[in-house]
């Protein structure tokens, strides 16, 4: 029971991370294609300024919780995904530094350098996270010792890459919507246009991904034995459709929430399908890491549950407050202040 609760919390943490950092990563990927001048670039940077750092902590917490609740899975997963994970980290490092440093130097070369870093630091994580999760859904070649028999190319299989593309597209729509919320005038209009354009590609890729999942993974088995669970993919698809509806109405906040729900739903669809596996082995199902053979002791799980139930609601409360404080569009005054990016 405890293990199942922690499995769900684990899934939710990742889902919230994708929902929150998703718009930063997506907007960072979109930036070079949508911003026409330094002013527009600065609007993009400042639209995520107060949030990106706290968003990224969800990743750290998701990682930490994997470590705390399922140490064996953490050990195997992270060492198996050695190269992609380190690439992810380097990318996130240069993104953070790009955000912080870019506007603190004036020369054009300096800013260009960090713009490139910001793009790479946004696009690469989006892609890799998708590749990693698709591979987790599909299973990777690990033996009974949890040793990974493969390399980076093993992970870059068609289904893995499809997952990567799906994530990039989900985040692009999410980020474009955030820009539509935070920008004014022409940039706002272009952002909305980008969101609805990319949405169409996303819809196609999502359908292909759902079909490929049938062939490449065992995710649907849980849904076939418990049809009630199908509500998750159904809600996800409805949320994706609603996103487009709200974009057309120019109700960007609503569209952004619908897009958030899409991302959370997509993540939970995978996680629920995975249960009770954390990392299936593609060599032999008996080698798979499950919540039973890789969890922490029940004392640790209980203490951690106490900590999570106490502090996570507090975290959510003050993070909502911080979004509320900075709910307005980025204005000229904001850009003129000494602290602005």
């Amino acid at each position: 029971m405890l293990e199942t609760i922690w499995f769900l919390l684990w899934g939710i943490l990742w889902a919230v991370y994708f929902m929150l950092d998703g718009f930063d990563l997506g907007l960072g990927t979109l930036a070079p294609f949508i911003a026409r001048n330094d002013n527009e670039k600065r609007i993009i940077y400042n639209s995520m300024g107060p949030f990106w750092d706290a968003n990224e902590v969800w990743l750290i917490t998701a990682g930490g919780v994997t470590f705390a609740a399922f140490p064996t899975a953490y050990a195997v997963m992270f060492s198996a995904l050695y190269t992609p994970l380190l690439l992810l980290l380097f990318a996130l490092i240069i993104r953070a530094v790009a955000l912080e440093f870019r506007s603190k130097g004036e020369s054009e070369g300096w800013r260009k350098l960090w713009d490139v870093c910001h793009f790479l630091g946004s696009f690469v994580p989006a892609l890799l996270l998708g590749v990693a999760f698709a591979n987790i859904f599909k299973g990777i070649p690990i033996d009974q010792e949890g040793i990974f028999h493969g390399n980076l190319l093993t992970l870059l299989n068609p289904y893995g890459l499809l997952g990567g593309i799906l994530f990039v597209l989900l985040f692009l729509v999410h980020g474009a919507l955030w820009l539509a919320i935070k920008a004014e005038g022409d940039l706002e209009t272009r952002a909305a246009k980008a969101a609805s354009g990319i949405w169409l590609i996303l819809l196609i890729v999502a359908v292909v991904f759902l079909a490929a999942t049938w062939f490449a993974t065992g995710l649907y088995l849980n849904y076939l034995s418990n049809p009630i669970l199908l509500i998750i993919p159904v809600v996800t698809v409805l949320a994706l459709l609603a996103t487009r509806l709200f974009i057309n109405q120019r109700a960007f906040w609503k569209a952004w929430f619908a897009s958030s729900l899409t991302i959370v739903g997509a993540t939970l669809f995978g996680v629920v399908g995975l249960y009770p596996n954390l990392l299936p082995s593609s060599l032999n199902p008996a080698y798979s890491l499950t919540i039973y053979n890789s969890s922490s002791s029940s004392l640790t799980l209980k203490i951690m549950l106490g900590v999570a139930l106490t502090f996570v609601p507090i975290v959510i409360a003050y993070q909502i407050w911080s979004y509320y404080v900075f709910r307005d569009k980025v204005t000229k005054d904001d850009l003129a202040s000494d602290e602005a990016y």
């Binding site: 300024g49 750290i60 922490s296 975290v315 900075f326």
Partner: peptide
Amino acid sequence: GDIFGSLLAIEATVAFFLESTFIGVWVFG
């Protein structure tokens, strides 16, 4: 991991969220 991992996870939940959220509010607020 049963012991060490939980300390890292608690750190992120209890402290790191607080730090990162309020630094953003402080800088831009």
